[in-house]
Computed example of a mutant assay.
Amino acid sequence: MSFPIVRHRRLRTSAALRNLVREYAFSAHDLIYPIFITEGTGVKNEISSMPGIYHFSLDTLEDEINEVVALGIPAVLLFGIPATKDAVGSSAFDDEGIVQRATRQIKQNHPELLVIADTCLCEFTDHGHCGIVHVDECTHQAVIDNDESLEFLARTAVSQAKAGADIIAPSNMMDGFVQAIRTALDDAGFTHIPIMSYAVKYASAYYGPFREAAGSAPQFGDRKSYQMDPANAREALREAESDILEGADMLIVKPALAYMDIIKSVRENFDLPIVAYNVSAEYAMVKAAAINGWINERAIVMETLTGMKRAGADMIITYFAKDAVRWLKEG
C-alpha cells in the first residue's frame, strides 16, 4: 500500500489558518524606538541618510512622544546631540545635559513610557570616540584609556538615572563597563535600575547613517580596538557571558540583520532577555530601495522584524517601530 506525500498544504489554505499556526510574530510591545534629541528651539530636521527620522529639540519632542505613546510603543531609546563637545564628553554626565533634560520632560508628561538612556561618550567628545583618548608616550599614537573611560561612563549612567531613566543602555564596549556602571548605580541608590548592555557590538559598516545623525564619527582612527570583529562568532558568547557575570540584565546584539546567527547563538546559550538592534544602515537601505520603487517596504520590514524574533530576539530596537505598529494595526 502506498501513501501520498503530504506537505501540510491544508495548513496554508487561508489567512486565518496561517495566522493560527504561525510560529513567530512580533507586536508593538516588542519594539523600542530610537530618538535623537538636540539643543535649540523649533528644531525638527530630517536626517538626510535616514528618511523619516528627525533631530528634535525639546520643544518639538512632545508631539513625537505623543505619537509613540498613542501607537502603544512601550519604550524609547534616547541619543543626545549637545551644543558643545570636549575631550572627556562632559555634557554626557552633566545633570543639565540634553539627554537628562529630555528624560525629565518625557517622564513628567508620560510616566508610563519607558526611557532608555544610551550611555556612551562618542556623541559628546570632540574626537568622536567612545572613551577617553591619550597619546602614548612611546608610539605617539592616540589610544583609548579603558579604565579612565569607565569613570566617566559610570558618572554618565548615574546622571541619567537621577534624571529618571528607567533603563541604562551602555554602548561603549570598554572592558568592564557593566561592572563599573552597576557598582556606580548601586552606590548611588539606583539598585533597581536595570542595565541593557550592548554586550555584542560589532565594528560594523552598518553604522554610517547613525554617525551622521549623532555627529559621532571618529575624528581619527576607528573603533576596531574596542568593538568586535565581524568575522568572530565564538567571541560573542564570551562577551555576553562576561557582561552577565558583571551584572547585565538584558543583552543587545548589534547590528541585527547580518548577525541573525549571533542572535540565535546568544539566545541558545543564555536565558537573559535578548535585544536585536535593527541599525541605521539596515533602515536606510530599505528606505532607499522603497523610495526608488524597487521593493515593497511594508513587506520587507515586516518579514525582517519577524526574522529577528525567529532568531531569538525578545525585543527589537528599530527606526521602523512607528511604521511597523501602524502596519500591524492595519492587519
Rank of each mutant, 00 (worst) to 15 (best):
M1D: 08
P4C: 02
I5C: 09
R9T: 14
R12G: 01
R12A: 01
R12C: 02
A15M: 13
L17R: 03
V21L: 08
R22G: 06
A25K: 15
H29A: 12
Y33W: 10
P34I: 11
I35E: 07
T38F: 08
G40R: 10
V43C: 04
K44H: 11
K44E: 13
N45P: 00
I47R: 14
G52N: 15
H55T: 00
H55R: 10
D63W: 09
E64S: 12
N66L: 08
V68W: 05
V68F: 00
V69E: 08
A70P: 03
A70L: 14
L71H: 01
I73S: 05
L77M: 08
L77T: 04
L78W: 03
A83H: 13
K85R: 15
D86G: 01
A87E: 09
G89Q: 03
F93V: 09
D95L: 11
D95E: 15
I98H: 02
R101Q: 14
T103R: 13
R104F: 10
Q105A: 12
I106E: 11
H110A: 14
P111D: 15
P111I: 15
I116M: 11
A117Q: 06
D118Y: 03
D118S: 01
T119A: 07
C120V: 07
E123V: 02
D126L: 05
H127Q: 06
G128V: 03
G131T: 00
V133T: 07
V133R: 00
D136G: 00
A142I: 01
V143D: 03
I144P: 01
D147P: 00
D147R: 06
E148M: 12
L150A: 02
E151K: 10
F152R: 08
F152C: 13
A154F: 13
R155T: 04
A169F: 07
P170V: 01
N172V: 01
N172W: 09
N172F: 07
G176D: 01
V178E: 10
T183N: 15
L185H: 07
D187Y: 13
A188G: 02
I195W: 00
M196H: 02
M196Y: 07
S197E: 09
S197P: 01
Y198A: 03
Y202L: 11
A203M: 09
A203C: 05
S204P: 14
G208P: 05
P209C: 15
A213P: 05
A214S: 15
S216K: 02
S216M: 12
S216L: 11
D222Q: 13
D222M: 12
K224E: 12
S225M: 13
M228C: 05
D229W: 00
A231V: 11
A236C: 09
R238Y: 02
D243T: 00
D243N: 04
I244L: 13
I244G: 07
L245S: 09
G247R: 08
D249E: 02
M250D: 11
I252C: 12
P255W: 14
I274R: 10
N278F: 12
V279Q: 10
S280H: 10
A284H: 06
A284Q: 08
A288T: 04
A290Q: 09
N292Y: 05
A299P: 00
L305I: 10
T306H: 15
G307F: 05
R310H: 12
A311F: 13
A313P: 04
A313L: 15
D314K: 10
I316P: 01
T318V: 08
Y319W: 07
A321S: 13
K322Q: 11
K322H: 04
A324I: 05
A324G: 09
K329Y: 07
